[in-house]
Design a protein around this nucleic acid. Structure first.
Lengths: 351, 351
DNA sequence: CTCAAAATTGTGATCGTTCACAAACGAGCC
DNA sequence: GGCTCGTTTGTGAACGATCACAATTTTGAG
């Protein structure tokens, strides 16, 4: 068949250029928003792109030396599904995917996830491999990678902008975080306003930055109300440990009438103990949680909780990275507002 | 500095070739597992790759006309986080990410997620755009896209292998599914074995393939035990509706003593009603759920559930796609075994 | 009307890899 | 030893975009 060419793939920039009667570079300029294109030509190129259904090939763009239009989100790798789900609440990733993809897509970018070992020796190598193979334009580090200075340094060496979730000390990075101190304070003050003075805080892990900040906020709110007794229990984010810790607190001479748990799973442990001992919630024991996974609405009773705005945080990280790459400017810090959602476990009626 | 060149990026295949003293093509052969390389040379190349920390650039590979080493997972796009989380249980995506990434990574592949509108007119276009920009080597369609024949056709036109999750009719596609009929049968027989004969099934949605199959399995198990009364309630996967439906069933003259819910959220509704009416679970009302999100272990009491093996399904889909691309062969169907996990809501002790 | 400056458009080189094909090498057979 | 055939290695072209720079057109001031 004379003149027929075998096409390895779909519509290319040359096809658009040929259809309009301009060079590929002019089409490229339109794609990349260069100002120096005659309005009439720009119009015709847009029409041709639409008509032909042209979409730029991401790999080719990357090869051309331009941007990759890819944001890489780094999560910690775990071995089993159980560990993965227990990691940081099982809807953390769900929210990441939603928030991140929605934000990236709105700008014509893509979000790619990669798992990297937390172990420092493997972490650097894992990130380096991901960078080499994907060549992202920006990287998001989630906990606990966000606290790994080595990874931040590696990204700086490569000149790749970095956003950190749940970290607030950065100067060279985009830090996106919520005010953990204020959130714990709000939860504590909510209970104090309801008349409680024996309020326990079940911490997740001493070495987690967020736990320490929350304990500080809790203590500050108590102090502010003139309550001298802080009742901090050492949990590990898991049900069984929390059960023991809460049981021990309740066995004291002057037991708590309210519990703040560092995540939902531990709040469920509080409900479970209350149920087992015939304590009414919230009358005998009020419960507040940090996290607000969808399931807490269906607990018996539904849990009052500080909502962790994960989707918003990731969306903000993506938007900021994109803005940084496309518009220049300097990395900034973004505090995302938290929310205290009052439900039946502290006496409110709503679900 | 004489001879110094400005490097736009990291280690390339040429660097490895130069270090070993061979041509790039020989290194490429080693990377792609070609058999025709002298063992001694292969050895030295592997050593150099290791020493230099070389990782192939994915974009360049794709440009070279080879594979992209990318599996694209298509999910339905929704507008709000609430809808996203309510979609199919909030840990569906969590499991997808874990199962899919783990499987892909093991083969040196990558998993990329993309959101595509469910609306038929936009769906085709959304997928076409994703294909054009990412050029994946394989695509996974999750519900409800898995049932969209138009998308399957589009992939066939492009010659891109396709795996469908939760679909079992495919001939040209890799279909990965669980035996919904048998699972519902197992749940039903479990309750019958515990002495129940008034067993209700709260369906999720009539037009969901899986709901219909589960109802069939439920009815078959009843018939098998000589129980003539099937008590099917029409739910919509949501708490509030399920609450009404279950209340109506309990108001009957001869109310059910057991409820099977089509997802966890509706099972929580059953627990909630029981708690509100002072019915003991499992003594007065036994509850079985389909889904087994992590939270059901912390319900009061913990829920017996059919575990939906989402992570395994996605992992299987990825592995099969990769095998198909790398090894040839024909698409096959994969039935993933389900599991009935017995907990306190049907009388068992474990969590 | 002329000419310089600004705006617009086009051309070759380039990114890092694989493909297609050609060349060199080595073993086995008569 | 010479020849063929299979194994191993190398070379130029290609993929589809962007970059750097050059060429052309348009604009506007004198």
């Amino acid at each position: 068949m004379h003149g027929a060419m075998i096409r390895r793939s779909g519509v290319t920039i040359e096809d658009v250029a040929a259809a309009v009667g301009v060079s590929r570079q002019t089409v490229s300029r339109v794609l990349n928003g260069s100002p120096n294109v005659k309005p009439a030509v720009r119009e015709r190129i847009h029409a041709a792109i639409e008509a032909l259904g042209y979409v730029p090939n991401l790999s080719a763009r990357r090869m051309g030396g331009g941007r990759s239009y890819v944001v890489l989100a780094i999560n910690d790798r775990v071995r089993t599904l159980e560990n993965w789900q227990a990691r940081r609440g099982n809807d953390y990733v769900d929210q990441m995917l939603f928030g991140g993809m929605t934000a990236c897509e709105a700008q014509g970018w893509h979000l790619v996830f990669e798992l990297v070992d937390t172990d420092p020796a493997h972490a650097r190598r894992g990130l380096a491999n991901a960078l080499a193979s994907l060549r992202p334009d920006g990287v998001i580090l989630t906990p606990p990678h966000c606290d790994n200075a080595d990874l931040v340094a590696l990204l700086a060496e490569h000149g790749i902008p970095c956003a950190r979730i749940g970290h607030r000390e950065g100067t060279s990075t985009i830090d996106v975080f919520m005010d953990e101190v204020a959130a714990a304070g709000a939860a504590t003050r909510h209970l104090i306003a309801l008349g409680h003075s024996r309020i326990a805080f079940i911490a997740g892990a001493a070495n987690y930055g967020s736990s320490a900040l929350r304990i500080a906020g809790y203590r500050a709110a108590l102090a502010e109300a003139g309550i001298s007794d802080a009742l901090v229990g050492d949990g590990d984010f898991h049900f069984e440990t929390a059960e023991r810790v809460i049981a021990a607190l309740l066995a004291q001479g002057d037991p708590p009438t309210a519990v703040i748990a560092d995540n939902d799973e531990m709040a469920f442990a509080a409900l479970h103990i209350a149920s087992a001992r015939g304590l009414r919630v919230p009358e005998d024991l009020a419960v507040v949680s940090f996290e607000d996974t969808p399931g807490v609405r269906f607990a018996v009773p539904p849990l009052t909780a500080i909502r962790q705005p994960v989707a918003e945080m990731i969306a903000s990280a993506c938007s900021s990275l994109i803005a940084l790459v496309e518009g220049g400017g300097a990395p900034a810090r973004h505090e995302i507002p938290f929310e205290l959602i009052c439900r039946a476990s502290t006496g409110q009626d709503q679900r």
